[in-house]
Amino acid sequence: MTNTTATDTVQINRVYIRATPERVWEAITSPEWNGKYGYGAPAKYDLRPGGKYEAYATEEMKAYDPNLGDICVDGEVLEADPPRKLVQTWRMCMDQGTKEEGFTRLTWEIESSFDGVCKLTVTHELSGAPKLAELVSGALERTGAGGGWSFVLSDLKSLVETGAPLAG
């Protein structure tokens, strides 16, 4: 993992996963997979430029925040090159402050590395979104807000390699 700070306007996280690029791509883009790791919000992608991206709030999220709507993160697909690259906009809708910061840019890059291992690099461009930058950096973990991209990618790695998320 690459270390990031809450003040970084571009945060880069990297993880190595013993899996094929196709399997990692599926874990990112398929709601059957992406709802099993991270914060458990299944997400749907329309994998074409201009296509919609939506991550759906779970019942647990809604119980924690009764004002939360059905969509917790939304955006648009800018580029999809399976199984190598996905570029999208990304907006956190779970609280008004991060929602008002607007859309940020998120790039997923998957590369074969060595002996059946893939390198997954997530680049999150957060200019103009300081609240979101702090949240996704993991700086608010001690408050119960979660470990940001480091946690999400660690959980994805665990699920793909073992079939079970970190806290399952």
Rank of each mutant, 00 (worst) to 15 (best):
T7M: 14
T7L: 10
D8R: 06
V10A: 02
V10T: 11
V10E: 11
I12Q: 11
N13F: 09
R14T: 09
V15G: 01
Y16I: 14
Y16R: 15
R18L: 13
E22F: 06
E22Y: 04
E22K: 12
E22N: 14
E22W: 09
V24Y: 01
V24H: 01
W25S: 05
A27Q: 00
I28E: 01
S30Y: 12
S30A: 12
E32V: 12
N34M: 07
G35K: 00
K36Q: 05
Y37K: 00
Y37M: 07
Y37N: 02
G38H: 02
A41R: 03
P42H: 01
Y45G: 05
D46M: 07
D46C: 06
L47D: 05
P49M: 09
G50L: 08
G50C: 03
G51C: 06
K52Y: 07
Y53G: 00
A55M: 03
A55H: 03
A57S: 10
A57G: 04
A57H: 00
E59F: 00
E59R: 11
E60C: 09
E60H: 11
E60I: 07
A63M: 11
Y64A: 14
Y64V: 13
Y64K: 15
N67E: 05
G69K: 07
D70R: 11
D70Q: 13
C72W: 06
V73P: 00
G75D: 04
G75R: 03
E76V: 05
E76D: 15
L78A: 09
E79M: 12
A80P: 03
D81L: 13
P82L: 07
P82F: 06
P82I: 10
P83M: 10
R84F: 14
L86D: 02
V87N: 09
Q88C: 10
R91W: 10
C93R: 13
D95S: 12
D95W: 03
K99V: 11
G102N: 06
G102S: 13
G102W: 09
G102A: 10
G102P: 04
L106N: 11
L106W: 05
E109P: 02
I110N: 01
S112Y: 15
S112N: 14
S113N: 15
D115Y: 13
V117T: 13
K119I: 05
L120I: 07
T123P: 02
H124T: 05
E125F: 06
L126Y: 04
K131T: 04
A133I: 02
A133V: 05
A133S: 11
E134K: 12
